[in-house]
């Protein structure tokens, strides 16, 4: 469904992605693991159009996304939950969700809103509240809910566990698995390899801008290097 081939991205002189290739098939959760600064966020930001690659291709179901502005890529069915959540602090919870459906005008928006509220009942309770006053976990729920309002075919999740208590991480990842079971394909960027591999089908390990390892989630969990580097053994 989503295919990145030989992607090179630069920040000025810095060569951030050095030929990244990866693919996500329809219905999969694919984890993109690796340490801080490896280029994980850069990869998803390039997919969603926030960065332009210097070379390489990005295809969504055979159609190229390279060169499209970010606001057009949403239309193609890619929604991005950015690292650090980036909810609109000064908008209400409800308005944030409406922003997620910004490009839509169809009649199914209320149904999708109900679905988000059933995934995250807390958001329903706080729908009128200014989003900046939500707790970290609620903000993450809102960021995910907002992305779902775009009814994406592919959901890009950047570090959803960041800064959250373990209980909340558990809860968020259960929801991610649930969203995936309902048919949304997910590319999941995570530093927390243990939780990511629990829900992912496959994974890639990125180090200093290159993919160094790829495999099924169970292969990666068994892999000695992964265990040493990312699972704390």
């Amino acid at each position: 469904m989503l295919e990145l081939r030989d992607l090179h991205v630069y920040y000025g002189e810095i060569h951030a992605l050095k030929g990244v290739s990866l693919s996500v098939s329809g219905g999969e959760i694919v984890a993109l693991l690796g340490p801080n600064g490896a280029g994980k966020s850069t990869t998803v930001k390039t997919v969603s159009g926030l960065h332009a690659p210097r070379s390489g291709t990005i295809q969504l179901e055979g159609e190229s996304l390279v060169g499209l502005p970010a606001h057009e890529i949403v239309n193609r069915g890619v929604a991005h939950v950015p690292e650090g959540r980036h909810i609109f602090n000064r908008l209400s919870v409800f308005e944030n969700l409406e922003m997620g459906a910004y490009r839509r005008s169809d009649a199914r928006i209320p149904d999708d809103l109900d679905r988000v509220f059933s995934l995250f009942p807390r958001l329903k309770e706080r729908r009128a509240q200014v989003a900046g006053t939500l707790s970290g976990g609620e903000q993450q729920m809102l960021a995910i809910g907002r992305a779902l309002m775009a009814t994406p075919r592919v959901l890009l999740l950047d570090e959803p566990s960041m800064g959250l208590a373990p209980v909340l991480v558990e809860q968020i990842f259960e929801t991610i698995a649930d969203i995936n079971r309902h048919g949304t394909t997910i590319l999941l960027v995570e530093q927390n390899a243990a939780v990511a591999l629990e829900v992912a089908h496959r994974g890639y390990v990125l180090e200093t801008g290159s993919i160094v390892l790829a495999g099924t989630a169970s292969d990666l969990i068994q892999n000695v290097d992964v265990r040493r580097a990312y699972l704390g053994e």
């Binding site: 970010a70 606001h71 609109f88 908008l91 308005e95 997620g100 910004y102 907002r146």
Partner: peptide
Amino acid sequence: TKLGKAIRAVAEDQPTASLMGVNV
């Protein structure tokens, strides 16, 4: 209005507004 919401979203966070499909 929807336009007003988009203006407020752009005022707060341009990259994220563009991720919502807003032509900044």
